[in-house]
Design a protein around this nucleic acid. Structure first.
Length: 897
RNA sequence: GGGUCGUUAGCUCAGUUGGUUAGAGUACUACCUUGACAUGGUAGGGGUCACCGGUUCGAAUCCUGUACGACCCACCA
């Protein structure tokens, strides 16, 4: 006996008017988990594996996550119901810089500066933060109905996971793919760390261009009276200038050869250099070169052997090397420099200038180009196979190839990846420095110490305790790129049973915004760390990538905290129910398209819940008044059986193409229109009339199948209704009920059903237009060549258009409500006199339309080239259209006279 | 500057290899509350498929170009 089924009868008697999600969702979550339906272990079935894109432990889930998790759950539940061993691994990402920035902010509010804390003290706060927000995220995932295996929760800073990251670092270093060096990198002065190129976001902004005069002197420093004006947006960097550069072909400046310029404010003498790089048309055609603070200037400096003067501290204040305004914040310093230059009369012009500024993705501080010693991954070697995996079709990207070009371009032009971060929250870089500054890379201090030994085995002249570990941590993506492997311990315990069974994962569902950060790098890592003996299709981390779009608000704006347009997921679940939230977010969300989030869609989902609930109440209500079965299978049952087969095939096809919102739309229409509006109305008995027992049994069967199809999308209500429809033995839950394959649909029966629907609609329309009240009964006469068809759909037709009965005479009675559909003509005789003129008016309109239609068809058919070139079936179709239209016109014209 | 994608009903979107005078949801209009559901029922109105040109018997669909929009990439101070 099902654990809660003893209450069913009582529960049924109390069935509420509307569906109440909060009564069922917690109950089913508990039940599914207790039955361990979501827990997966390798077995003989094929695996279907999804690893969750681990949310950052920085806060709560937003609507973008909601969309991604819903898509994943639909795929996982569908697979679970189709014979796969479905495994969905949940987890979260430590999100190094993002979390550290939030923790620092939280501490600041408490009046604690990070600089006052030791590293272990800080880590303690960070772990507390992680536990708090990780818990919130997991609760949200559960409330949404996500069928993840909670025994497989992974976190990118778990001990094993940490070890895997270190192991990968060491091995890439040993393979020469990681190096340490001084390079120009992007610096976040707020977080005081280096960033990768990908972590910088650019925004167009209105800047200002200042024209500054530099005096020209000869090589012994004597004034020449000549001056050069340069244009700059960053006057605060002039103290770092080490040259002035002009284009060698620029006639305005040829005389400057061999002369020097004097840097304003600091009065340092710098050379004039010549390089094609300078565009004579921009500004004044003269460029100040500041190698420490601009990537182009850095490259110019390298080429011309210029010194580098770093005038900024790590926090963005001016360093002693600046000589003036030391310690002043960079933007304040800019204003101070401008003011001083004006005092000295050296600024002769200012103008607005559109520019692009780089911001730190996480702290939103303006980044500084900065020369700094960091760790890098050589990307070229890793990129090659990753490119091949996608271009050669081992990994399929959905939708279509929309992102292929982007992916290809990035990999073909990829730069080395700066992976060191000057932070504490993350995996600490396993490099160990001797007192003399040399280092070795190893997973442990002892191992590193051993590496310092001379080739003859003699010990180094210092103790292991004197080794100092690199203080930096690794970029968070340097750990998450291992996610699909290490959640199955594929790096810390290679070749184990899990990794062999679950890897490669089946599909990765994620936002298109992290295609470079994560998707491309996971492919690199997957290929690099899978045994080379395996074929490509076993080394890729996933077979399909499903990109979801960005969730925006109704007005198309990005969801953000500052705009306050990002709804709270739990509040939405409270208000509409988890199924309705899932429905609402999926219904208008084709892969890769941005989704304009509108609560109206959730309302539609809630209404759909209610519709299902009431249909269940209707069907359950028949249970107590069953009559013995009469006829062979009645028409509505035969029709819906085939309609269901047809829709099932469509839905399976849409799943195969990852067109999930289309599948949901198909299902929605199947349930609401075909099942509720047509089928149930056709088989519904009159008030307090008995129901054919076989019809009841078949109807319950249909309902179950519909709930099964719906289950991946709306798991809670479908499971609830499944159990309310019948008593179920232990373990018979929709959640794990396997789909059965059925035969093909019978096209003839579907066509008859369509005819019936069309006739009903046409007759109802005529009744409406004649302003007949629903209660006014008519006598129905039909003139048709399909008498046998109308004989078996007749009773339904009568009920649906409120006719007392049907006659099929050779000629129809006059003075009636007349309807023409195809080659059939219908007449409804009413108890009262109808407005004949109005009816004729309708018929004339119809006639006019038909004549236009016929004309267009005739035009085609009289075109010889059409008849010659078009496919025969197309021509036949046109001929048929012509016949039908002519027949209908004839009937209409007869009726009018 | 380079690239990708998009433009179909008031709004959000389908429209499969070119072939019924273009479909759905939502919004809108009219009518309907006695028996599943007004979070509902029945029916209806609504589109020159962004624009110009081309290919074709035939174009929302294929091709040139234009306009507008979104996104990505790029070292022009």
């Amino acid at each position: 006996m099902h654990p809660r089924f003893e209450d069913t009868i009582l529960y049924y008697m109390q069935l509420s008017k509307n569906y109440t999600p909060s009564d069922t969702e917690g109950k089913w979550n508990d039940h599914w988990e207790k039955q361990r339906y979501f827990n997966s272990r390798p077995d003989g079935r094929p695996s279907f594996t999804v690893v969750i894109p681990p949310p950052n432990v920085t806060g709560v889930l937003h609507m973008g996550h909601t969309l991604n998790e819903t898509v994943q759950d639909i795929l996982i539940r569908n697979a679970r119901m189709r014979g796969y061993n479905a495994c969905w691994v949940p987890g979260s990402d430590h999100a190094s810089i993002a979390t550290e920035a939030r923790v620092v902010g939280m501490l600041k509010e408490k009046g604690i500066e990070k600089s006052q804390l030791t590293r272990p003290e800080f880590m303690k706060y960070a772990y507390e933060w992680k536990d708090k927000y990780g818990g919130i995220i997991y609760d949200q995932i559960r409330r949404l109905g996500c069928s993840v295996d909670w025994e497989r929760v992974a976190f990118t800073m778990d001990a094993d996971y940490y070890a895997s990251v270190i192991k990968v670092f060491v091995s890439l270093y040993e393979q020469g793919l990681i190096y340490r060096g001084a390079r120009m990198i992007h610096w976040d002065p707020q977080a005081k760390t280096a960033l990768s190129d990908e972590e910088v976001e650019y925004r167009d902004e209105q800047g200002r261009l200042y024209y500054v005069d530099y005096a020209i002197v000869d090589k012994s420093g004597r004034p020449t009276g000549r001056k050069v004006t340069i244009a700059t947006q960053r006057p605060e960097t002039i103290m770092g200038d080490t040259a002035i550069c002009v284009n060698p072909s620029d006639p305005r400046y040829t005389d400057l050869s061999g002369l020097f310029a004097v840097v304003p404010l600091v009065h340092r003498q710098i050379p004039i250099i010549f390089d094609e790089y300078v565009d004579p048309a921009f500004g004044t055609g003269a460029l100040k070169v500041t190698p420490a603070h601009d990537i182009n200037d850095y490259n110019l400096g390298l080429k011309h052997g210029l010194p580098i003067i770093d005038t900024l501290n790590e926090d963005g204040t001016l360093s002693p090397a600046a000589g003036v305004f030391i310690g002043m914040e960079r933007f304040a310093a800019r204003n101070a420099v401008i003011k001083q230059l004006k005092v000295e009369g050296l600024i002769n012009k200012e103008e607005d200038h559109l520019t692009r500024l780089g911001y730190s993705q996480r702290t939103h501080a303006v980044v500084e180009p900065r020369i700094s010693t960091q760790w890098f991954v050589r990307m070229k070697a890793l990129a090659q196979p990753a490119l091949k995996a996608v271009t050669e079709g081992y990994i399929h990207i959905h939708p279509g190839d929309k992102f292929m070009a982007t992916y290809k371009y990035w990999l073909e032009n990829v730069e080395d990846w700066c992976i060191s971060r000057q932070l504490w929250w993350g995996q600490q870089i396993p490099a160990w420095y001797a007192p003399d500054g040399t280092f070795r890379v190893a997973a442990t201090r002892d191992e590193a110490y051993r590496l310092f030994s001379a080739p003859d085995g003699s010990r180094p002249p210092f103790g292991a305790g004197q080794l100092r570990q690199d203080g930096d941590v690794l970029d968070t993506w340097f750990s998450s790129w291992l996610w699909p492997i290490e959640v199955f311990k594929g790096i810390t315990n290679p070749g184990n049973a899990d990794i062999r069974y679950y890897y490669p994962t089946s599909v990765l569902v994620t936002g298109q915004d992290i295609i470079f950060f994560w998707v491309a790098r996971m492919i690199m890592a997957g290929l690099w760390y899978s045994p080379e003996s395996l074929p490509m299709e076993k080394r890729i981390p996933f077979r399909h990538v499903y990109f979801t779009g960005m969730v925006r608000d109704k007005q198309g704006r990005k969801m953000s905290k500052s705009l306050g347009n990002s709804p709270d997921l739990l509040a939405l679940i409270e208000k509409y129910g988890a199924d309705a939230v899932r429905f609402g977010i999926m219904i208008a969300s084709p892969a890769g398209n941005d989704l304009l989030f509108d609560e109206a869609a959730l309302e539609q989902g809630r209404n759909f819940n209610n519709k299902l609930w009431n249909a269940m109440k209707l069907v359950k209500g028949w249970e107590t008044r069953l009559a013995a079965s009469g006829d062979p299978t009645p028409f509505p049952v035969r029709w819906f059986e085939n309609r269901l087969r047809e829709a099932r095939a469509t839905i399976e096809q849409l799943f195969a193409e990852f067109r999930l919102s289309e599948a949901l739309k198909t299902l929605y229409s199947l349930i609401w229109d075909d099942f509720c509006s047509w089928y149930l109305e056709w088989v519904k008995p009159g008030f307090e009339q008995p129901v054919d027992a076989m019809v009841y049994r078949r109807t319950v069967g249909f309902f179950e199948q519909l709930m099964q199809l719906l289950h991946p999308f709306m798991p809670f209500i479908s499971e609830e209704i499944y159990h309310l429809l019948a008593d179920r033995p232990e373990g018979d839950d929709l959640c794990v009920k396997q789909f059965v394959t059925e035969g093909a649909a019978d096209a003839d029966i579907l066509a008859e059903g369509q005819l019936l629907k069309d006739v009903i609609t046409a007759l109802r329309d005529a009744r409406n237009k004649a302003q007949l009240k629903p209660k006014e009964q008519v006598d129905l006469y039909i003139q048709t060549g399909l008498k046998s068809t109308y004989e078996h759909i007749g009773p339904i037709l009568c009920k649906q258009v409120n006719a007392s009965g049907i006659c099929m005479p050779d000629t129809l009675p006059g003075g009636t409500l007349t309807v023409v559909l195809g080659k059939d003509k219908f007449a409804m005789v009413t108890a009262r006199i109808l407005d004949d003129d109005k009816q004729k008016e309708e018929m004339r309109k119809e006639l006019q339309y038909l004549k236009g239609f016929l004309e267009s068809v005739n035009k085609k058919l009289s075109n010889e080239r059409f008849v010659q070139n078009a496919k025969p079936e197309v021509v036949d179709l046109e001929r048929k259209k012509k016949d039908d239209a002519e027949a209908k016109i004839k009937i209409l014209e007869e009726s009018l006279t």
